[in-house]
Design a protein around this nucleic acid. Structure first.
Lengths: 195, 195
DNA sequence: CAATGCCTATCTTCCGATAGGTAGGTTAGA
DNA sequence: TCTAACCTACCTATCGGAAGATAGGCATTG
């Protein structure tokens, strides 16, 4: 099924995408705005340029699509974290790079973190998707713990605090329609993490 | 319409509720599990013991119901904050009381903060509901700023951090199915807020 | 020939919303 | 005080639309 990623491509802004990639891309943006329940096969299909029934060819059920989105989102995020650890040796630089991921979501994408919004409605998600979202948080916390607070006694707690405050601040900034919450939280994190 | 709160009551566990109260109560629990989109007139009606059409008598549209839930949630929260400020003079005690509100949501209700989950999907909410959710955050930040960090130079930033980290930690704890994120975040907040 | 990647057409289920009816209570005027 | 008018708080029945899902067909490609 996913082997189709390599064929049936089209040109868009100089980059090639398969239909599967397009479906996931469009679906991710939709989910980051309204969550899992806001995903609509018909709306996705219209934006991709196919019929809703065709999505079922690539993803048997809506839950499968949801899991695919979460997996790709987590994989991309993980790649960025690995690159970040490679290119920045200083914990403070790594924090800065991590913060940038959330600021980018707010100011560039103008969307929530996918797994943040999915986590909010995790009680009513298909079990497989719940697990996928959980993995995203575990990956993030593990990276923060190792890459930012390696030698500190409360490394895990610090990791939780950084991620929770950024997710929460993103939530607040979106709703309050101002950068202030996220910006202020970032400022305090920079000050306090290794004072 | 809302005058009906005072009539047509029934007994449940020694407390009187009107039909409107029951609708809002049931709807709030549903929204705190799956968000606005998970609200279903039919499901609410079944739990309340009336027909779905009857809900429209009390709330013309789903958006009206959503706003009513958010308003009541915010009003109750605000009452708790006022009482907290009355009974606790020390900022540290007030923080403890504030933390308890989120821990209670996780461990007793086993539900998200209503406005946390609504904020996540705020992009697709009716405008009136968006505004209601925004008010909840404003009320909380204003209270934290005045009651916990009154004389501190970065009072507002501190307020943002406390609320964002608690909302985020609640999100993470729900999804990761462990108290750890919320507990660890609380621990760090207690340590760092006035060191 | 067979697999791939779409299509059309259709199904059932659920959704919020509306129209119109009714039992029971309250109010107001003769 | 009787009664007509009205209000409250529901009800039944139904609407149009959107949801995910499925069956079966039809090109294109290797």
């Amino acid at each position: 099924m996913l082997s189709s990623c390599l064929i049936n491509r089209y040109w868009g802004q100089g980059v090639v995408y398969s239909t599967v990639d397009k479906i996931i891309e469009v679906a991710e943006l939709q989910a980051r705005a309204g969550g899992y329940s806001a995903l609509s096969f018909r709306v996705i299909a219209k934006q991709v340029g196919i019929k809703s029934a065709s999505i079922h060819y690539h993803f048997a059920t809506k839950a499968d699509l949801g899991v695919a989105i979460a997996h790709r989102y987590t994989a991309r995020f993980e790649q960025k974290l690995l690159r970040l650890a490679e290119h920045s040796a200083q914990p403070s630089d790594r924090l800065e790079g991590y913060i940038a991921l959330f600021v980018e979501a707010l100011t560039v994408d103008k969307k929530m973190c996918l797994c943040g919004i999915l986590a909010a409605e995790s009680d009513v998600l298909p079990e497989a998707l719940q697990r996928a979202v959980k993995v995203f948080f575990e990956v993030n916390v593990a990276w923060l713990q190792g890459a930012l607070f390696a030698d500190q006694p409360q490394a895990k707690a610090q990791a939780f605090l950084v991620m929770a405050s950024l997710e929460g601040a993103l939530l607040m900034s979106k709703t309050m329609q101002t950068d202030a919450p996220l910006q202020q939280v970032c400022k305090l994190l920079r000050q306090d993490c290794w004072q």
